[in-house]
């Protein structure tokens, strides 16, 4: 059934608001900045086209990758190491991130001084990218898996703390008041009134963090911090592109499978 609208005049809408000066200015500034930066880095489509036509052993390797690398015994060990690094880095980093995120909230830490210190610490570790962590620890403790683990630990800590803090901003404050009213202490309140509220989101962040760590570990090896990246760097140094691409395909496959599993799990969590 349709409601007859004939004969009913639509009321006049108030005049449409103009786009704000801020929006116009912001859009223009973004366009201008893109043009200026493209010029200053010497970007040109011509360069890409001419370079594509040249003979290039890297691209040739890509066309005939060495599939044998997938089952090669010498590649398996660094793969396992990559996995171990990702699991350990995620587990340790995200375990510590939960109290860290809780203690940087107003309700989880009534002391403004220590809260400020914790928030500052979170901001500092967040601004350091994974590769820089790896470089720092390679210089500090030497090459191998240890600097990779330390890098992933701090990187996970930063990522999970940030995501968890954002979730904590949006929780229901009612149960907190209820727990405080029963005479619970701070830890008991956080455990019973706050943690159950954020646990699904937090678990999802841990899984997501594991995905990032697995991918990051490919790069960590390039600076000598262990894992599959070491092996990639080894082939790269020798110019063995067929082997390198075989390994990269294998890595791609592993990351793809892990990501699919993780995405499915995360969808069930939230």
């Amino acid at each position: 059934m349709t409601v007859p609208t004939v004969g009913i005049q639509a009321p006049n809408l108030p005049p449409k608001p103009r786009p704000s000066l801020f929006a116009i200015g912001g859009t223009l500034a973004a366009i201008a900045m893109t043009i200026v930066t493209a010029r200053s880095v010497g970007f040109s489509f011509g360069g890409i086209v001419t370079n594509l036509g040249r003979k290039n052993s890297v691209i040739e390797g890509l066309l005939s990758p060495d599939w044998g690398q997938i089952w090669s015994r010498r590649s398996r060990a660094p793969f396992i190491e990559t996995f171990q690094l990702a699991v350990l880095g995620t587990a340790t980093g995200s375990l510590l991130s939960l109290p860290l995120a809780l203690w940087s909230t107003r309700f989880g830490n009534p002391n403004p001084f220590t809260r400020g210190i914790l928030r500052g610490f979170n901001n500092v570790i967040r601004s350091i990218p994974d590769l820089l962590w790896a470089l720092l620890f390679v210089s500090a403790v030497g090459i191998g898996a240890l600097p990779g683990l330390l890098a992933l630990f701090f990187f996970s800590l930063a990522v999970t703390t940030k995501l968890t803090s954002d979730t904590l901003d949006g929780i229901d404050m009612g149960p907190i008041e209820a727990a405080n009213a029963t005479g619970a202490n701070l830890s008991q309140m956080l455990r019973t009134a706050v943690v159950p509220q954020i646990l699904p989101a937090y678990s999802s962040f841990v899984l997501y963090n594991f995905e990032i760590n697995l991918r990051a570990s490919a790069v960590l090896g390039l600076v000598g911090a262990g894992g599959i990246g070491n092996r990639i760097e080894f082939f790269r140094g020798r110019g063995e592109w067929e082997e390198l691409w075989g390994l990269v395909f294998m890595f791609f496959l592993v990351v793809f499978v892990v990501e699919r599993i993780s995405v499915t799990l995360r969808r069930r969590l939230i």
């Binding site: 009612g174 209820a178 009213a181 005479g183 159950p196 646990l199 699904p200």
Partner: peptide
Amino acid sequence: RELRSEVGMIFQGFNLVER
């Protein structure tokens, strides 16, 4: 905390942990 443990409280919005 000792005092609060002797005083139960009931709220308009129930203040239960939903999850």
